[in-house]
């Protein structure tokens, strides 16, 4: 029941992201979509990821996007001409892409669960602790690489937004 509510909200707001004329409206619908996806994470018993979704995506990235939209005064940039030939190709590839993903989902449905981290086991430890343990033991090298990536992103954003290259 809750699944259908969240999926209807997510799909409707995703459609409005790409269909609305005003970029600011798109940004707010995208925040709504992120909240619906956080709801999916709660249903799937990953409360830590739901909190990260709301904090990082809806709280940090979308605030940055809305800031840039308002900084560049894009809310009334509506007179971009449409290219109907491009749209035709895009809609066909959209239908094909969805069909391929659907086929892939159907094909992979014979798998059986193999891991030991069942929902009951995760609930006894707590999913924040279990993610933290994995992040600092088995996945320590990707974690360090991710921190270097963030440092490079800071330097890159500074260089791009400078006035003179």
């Amino acid at each position: 029941m809750l699944f259908y509510v969240f999926s209807i909200i997510a799909i409707y707001s995703a459609l409005m992201v790409i269909l609305s004329r005003n970029p600011l409206t798109s940004a707010l619908y995208l925040v709504l979509c992120f909240f619906a996806i956080a709801g999916f994470y709660v249903i799937l018993d990953m409360e830590f990821l739901a909190a990260m979704q709301v904090l990082v995506y809806a709280g940090a990235i979308m605030v940055l996007v809305v800031l840039v939209i308002m900084l560049l005064n894009l809310a009334n940039a509506k007179n971009i001409p449409k290219d109907f030939h491009q749209m035709f190709i895009a809609v066909i590839s959209f239908i094909l892409l969805f069909f391929e993903i659907f086929l892939y989902a159907i094909k992979g449905s014979g798998k059986v669960p193999t891991g030991i981290y069942t929902t009951a086991f995760i609930k006894t430890i707590g999913n924040t602790q279990i993610i933290g343990e994995f992040l600092f033991t088995k996945y320590i090298f990707p974690f360090e690489v991710a921190s270097i990536l963030l440092l490079i992103a800071i330097i890159g954003a500074f260089i791009f937004a400078r006035r003179k290259f």
Partner: peptide, 9 residues
């Protein structure tokens, strides 16, 4: 899959 396709569109 639907969300991914909408994003690609």
């Amino acid at each position: 899959g639907i969300l991914f396709s909408i994003g690609g569109l």
